[in-house]
Design a protein around this nucleic acid. Structure first.
Lengths: 210, 210, 210, 210
DNA sequence: CATGAATGAGATTTCATTCAT
DNA sequence: AATGAATGAAATCTCATTCAT
């Protein structure tokens, strides 16, 4: 596996046609990485699925690794944006959590490969992998701090809570969406959320429960 | 002269010397798979670390995949046994959870590679990967059902709760043990556990909290 | 990072340069398989003789086996075509046999490796091996039937005769061309042919003998 | 494939037990070489089929090649002896041929692997391979010369005839016994023999035909 | 006599990447 | 911008053979 040495870093495409080709490659890569995993995925397969020649790949991407990382980062950015938009305008934090969970499950339902892609990233570039969760956690922490200060949530270490919540969402998503192939039934969703709600809101909070 | 008929499935070693060699290989494999991940790990590296010749590997294991799977299954079995022993004799379920979390974090602290190994398994053999969590979940579910029946825990779907708890433990372990390199500070541990405790125990339960 | 999904079946070369490379490989393979036999032949040796890099082989052929089979089938097709052309226009069947034997010996004289290649095929792909002789026999049978119906040849089971003739030619070719390195002297050729002629033509046939 | 260097050439077994083990290995080797061919056959497989440990092989045989050659030579010797015995006491040469063909087909019927073993030999040790046919041919030549001198057979080059006959027998054996799995039907046998008979015996010979 | 552990050379195959066109 | 031929390093796996017990 020669490490690129000379060769200029590919520039962004200048023409619309170039832009299109680049996107075809990204889409194909999402499929292939999602199904085969990073190491088993091959550039040939990606280019074939994209319908271009092998050499074309290196017109747009520096390496296999670089397209993978771009993919992970794009997915992360999109997921966070989706969540932000989903909860915009909601005024109780607990409701934010409910809608957030809902939106998260929805997002991974329609990006079936994202799970595997993100997880593979741990082995491809640890830094990028951590950044993915670190940024996600940062978003949570901000929201949680506010809710704790306002007394909506118990006063607990916000980072601990953030990772706990991400863990719950991740595993529930894996169990039902990845393995079952569909979003969890309402009964499961409600119970997961109840656990979260009781865990987060102070006993005396009248709004608690649903 | 390859293109063989799958040759001969390696038998268990007949002598103590053989047993020793096999173990050296397993130990080396745990290191190498843990550091490099399945695909990047190479048999050469494993045998070098084990201090045997390359061909010796195939005296004891059928393939790279087979030693990996043996490793994952052994780790799973050991972890479950450790947890079982840790909580034996404890009579309140909440305390079981606390001790269980403690033991889990302890276990992965001393098997630093287990995390990555288990996660890689998703890409190596999906069935084995699912079995790992399915069995773990089954253990939880049994305990949770009892606690719910006795009124110690809220009545929620036990499988949902099992995966939620595994998710919490997994992510907290990742964040502190994997990334930080040490067990989470008491403050974090307590807050994670508080979240779980409030989430699980009914409001009126006098034993709740710590 | 092997353990792939059979990757991509090599397409026919798109450029003249590619076609040239593919042919160089086929030529080299004929030499190497002919001298070493299938199993002892190695891809390295073939590519070295062809003057290309090892990986280039797999640009044009799926596997060692596939190039070998292509070789056998090509040889069979060429031999049959050569025989067909050699006897075209000849009107007595006995003369056809004489010219055919001549042409056969000539063909293997100038394809010194063909013998060993075809024989190895029995161990590489039995079906291809049988097809080689089955097709050859079919050609014979057609001609023999006609000659028998016209009374030129004795009425004998045509398939039996076809295999007997192929056996004679094969063994005579082996004894003189393969082992001696040159075509059998006239005296041998004539006696072999006499045996065939007397065996095939009815006693009263005035044209019999030479 | 290391070539043996030191290590003493294995002596013939001293005990009856040793003799038994050696024979078990030879029998197993006949099976394995016959089914897999020389190169694909492995010592492990032979020893497993023989029910002994891998190392035991080298107590009795110097190498893979040496057991193979012993096998070929034994088969050749046995075949020739069988033919000799079958035709002993027969006084017309044509009848000798008929009975010889019969006996040949019978022999290979009951040594199903012999065909492939002998053919593989061409690629293992050319000298042994030629000796196999050379000796067989020598037997024929002797008999043919006599028959020709006595006027029983046409005067043709005896070696040419010998190889032609061996070719016929070989190919007929291949077509019916190897491929069909049973001896050729009487009709085929008779026609093959008729071809031979008419080819060999002078026209005026009153005994000709059947 | 017999065993089974150990070796290491060698074989096929894959694939990211480069480059001339 | 796009192509497809070519490369060569590296990976997994096989197996004849040796050796200590």
């Amino acid at each position: 596996m020669p490490e690129s040495n000379s060769s200029v870093a590919p520039a962004k495409p200048a023409t619309a046609r170039g832009q299109r080709t680049r996107n075809k490659l990204l889409d194909a890569a999402e499929q292939v990485f999602g199904i085969q995993g990073y190491d088993r995925a091959s550039i040939v397969e990606i280019t074939q699925l994209a319908g271009v020649a092998q050499g074309t790949f290196y017109v747009y991407f520096e390496s296999k690794k670089s397209i993978f990382i771009e993919l992970v980062e794009t997915l992360g950015t999109n997921l966070r944006a989706t969540l932000r938009e989903a909860v915009a305008g909601i005024d109780t934090r607990l409701e934010v959590e409910r809608v957030g969970l809902e939106a998260f499950l929805q997002f991974i339902s329609s990006h079936e490969h994202m799970y595997k892609i993100v997880r593979q990233c741990e082995f491809v570039d640890e830094e990028v992998y951590r950044a993915y969760y670190t940024r996600m956690a940062a978003g949570y922490v901000a929201g949680l701090k506010g809710a704790m200060k306002r007394g909506e949530f118990r006063k607990l270490n916000p980072e601990a809570v953030a990772y706990a919540l991400m863990g719950i969402f991740d595993f529930v998503g894996m169990r039902w969406i990845l393995w079952e192939g569909k979003k969890p039934p309402k009964r499961i969703f409600d119970d997961v959320f109840a656990l979260v709600a009781y865990g987060l809101t102070p006993d005396e909070d009248p709004r608690r429960g649903k």
